[in-house]
């Protein structure tokens, strides 16, 4: 049996979002498993990467118990939207990196989980000590609708 893939798409084609702006988008599953999933979680969060131990905080969180909402067809796009906070802004430092993402976690009936996430940029802080070329590369828009499993 193939495990489904979470596909996330953000409105605005992955552009840089401003603090306080509304982030909206949709997600769907590539296929439905044999047994319907137990639950689904959608989070808009930031996390750190780099040398230090990771930090994470959730800005918006939705949880759906799918047994109660049989009508939700996860193969069809499900919309979400939230107003983004003022901080922390996305940051590509040398040993500290702050990243924002939309993460969808599906709890399958067999106890396994399927996770998909789409990284986006909040604010336009350029990478620390980058060259002009590196800055241009960092501001290149991300591909649309591709999940980062």
């Amino acid at each position: 049996m193939h495990r489904p893939i979470v596909i996330i798409r953000l409105d605005g084609n992955g552009r840089v979002y401003r603090p306080g702006e509304v982030l909206s988008g949709e997600f769907r599953l590539s296929a439905l498993p044999e047994r319907p999933p137990k639950a689904l979680e959608v989070s808009v969060l930031w996390y750190t990467e780099g040398k230090g131990d990771p930090d994470m905080a959730v800005h918006e969180f939705w949880r759906y118990r799918l047994s109660d909402q049989q009508s939700m067809d996860l193969r069809r796009p499900q919309r979400f939207s939230t107003q983004l906070p003022n901080s922390p802004l996305s940051y590509e430092g040398q040993i500290v990196k702050v990243r924002w993402c939309v993460r969808v976690r599906v709890f399958l009936a067999d106890g396994k989980e399927v996770v998909g996430q789409k990284v986006f940029r909040l604010g336009g802080v350029p990478p620390a000590k980058c060259s002009v070329n590196e800055l241009a590369a960092s501001q290149r828009p991300a591909l649309l609708g591709v999940a980062d499993p």
Binding site: G52, D53, P54, D55, Y91, V96, V98, G124, V125, P126
Partner: peptide, 14 residues
């Protein structure tokens, strides 16, 4: 103008 703001989390800081 493009400076990263001060940032303080449990394990990471600017």
């Amino acid at each position: 103008a493009g400076a990263m703001h001060s940032f303080r989390a449990t394990n990471n800081q600017v």
